[in-house]
């Protein structure tokens, strides 16, 4: 074999490794599926974890890969929840149809607002994302005929998934539905981040000047990433609406956006599994703490955030990855 061919073969192998499934990934998803069998009494929690993980995954695409600092990601989640909820109160019973509508609405809003987000610095982005979410909350508040206003949206009628699985009180369908959706969307996102498009996002985040000078249309890339992130957040919102059969203004509140940031950083930013692991930890913690001091739950979130930063995000987020390495036997990409 010639030198050039040998180098090319090594290069191909190295690039192959980037997107290959690690054994730990199989373990992760096997555990997720097994949780349905092992904890039949916690279906609702499993569903909640899955949709939170999906929400955090969408933020990872926006923040972790594209590097867009946002405080208003909850807007897309809340919009998705309302669209799916309103669809279900207006006779559109099919959950997948409701989810598609929610996804489309969130994508539209994401595409429209991405034009504002592209402008300026981190600071402008914080302001715009916060502003968009605040406007949406205000709109939902002012249209009680459509959204139920402060009382929340009631009277949703969600049909069976695929016409086969009706939602049950124990939440078994909800858990299966949420987990399956999470897995399907995860596969798509995984594909995206390993594509040249995904790599161009990393390049833009690392150095927009250089990315542009190798021909990458920086603004267009960020805009597309933001829109995809918004669409996925909309799906997560639809899951919340359909599995709990209720939507309230809470879905659009600021703490949604802040919580999902925390979820993502607990597990680590920019490696796909951060949001999922973060969701597990966050929801378990919430489950425990909320039973002790339900109304002051936000205090503990605040404490965790402060501690997380002071101790060092990298150091803390290193441990899920370290555990991962131990299971996988090598470093994840």
């Amino acid at each position: 074999m010639s030198d050039a061919a040998a180098t090319a073969a090594r290069a191909a192998a190295q690039l192959d490794r980037l997107s290959r499934w690690h054994p730990a990934e199989y373990v992760f998803w096997a555990l997720a599926a097994a949780s349905l069998l092992v904890f039949p009494s916690r279906y609702l929690l499993i569903s909640d974890i899955a949709l939170t993980g999906l929400f955090a995954l969408s933020l990872d695409l926006v923040l972790g890969y594209a590097g867009i600092l946002t405080l208003g990601h909850g807007a897309f989640f809340g919009l998705g929840a309302y669209v799916a909820g309103i669809a279900a109160t207006h006779g559109l019973r099919d959950p997948l149809l409701g989810m598609a509508l929610a996804c489309a609405a969130a994508a539209l809003l994401g595409a429209a607002t991405s034009l504002l987000v592209l402008r300026g610095s981190d600071l402008t982005r914080l302001m715009v994302t916060l502003g968009v979410a605040a406007v949406l909350l205000e709109v939902a508040n002012r249209l009680p005929a459509l959204t139920g206003g402060a009382d929340g949206l009631q009277g949703m009628d969600v049909g069976p998934v695929l016409g086969l699985l009706p939602f049950d009180l124990a939440g078994r369908t909800a858990a299966v539905y949420s987990l399956a959706t999470l897995f399907a969307v995860f596969l798509i996102v995984r594909r995206i981040v390993h594509s040249p498009f995904g790599w161009s996002l990393r390049a833009v985040r690392a150095n927009p000047l250089r990315a542009a000078s190798i021909g990458i249309a920086v603004d267009a890339r960020l805009s597309v990433a933001y829109t995809i992130g918004a669409a996925i957040a909309g799906i997560a919102g639809a899951l919340l609406a359909q599995t709990t059969q209720f939507v309230s203004l809470d879905g659009l509140a600021f703490h949604r956006s802040a919580d999902v940031l925390l979820v993502l950083v607990i597990g680590g930013v920019g490696w796909l599994y951060g949001g999922l692991i973060g969701a597990v930890l966050f929801k378990l913690m919430q489950d425990q703490l909320a039973t002790i001091t339900p109304q002051y739950w936000e205090f503990w979130i605040g404490l965790v955030l402060v501690a997380l930063v002071l101790i060092g995000r990298e150091r803390l987020a290193a441990w899920p990855r370290a555990l991962w390495r131990r299971v996988a036997g090598r470093q994840p990409a």
Partner: peptide
């Protein structure tokens, strides 16, 4: 380098391919 080459050869139509 792979990103730059793939970007030039593939344009924007390869969101579904993986890098490499």
């Amino acid at each position: 380098v792979g990103l730059a080459v793939s970007h030039r050869l593939g344009g924007d139509r390869q969101a579904w391919r993986r890098l490499g």
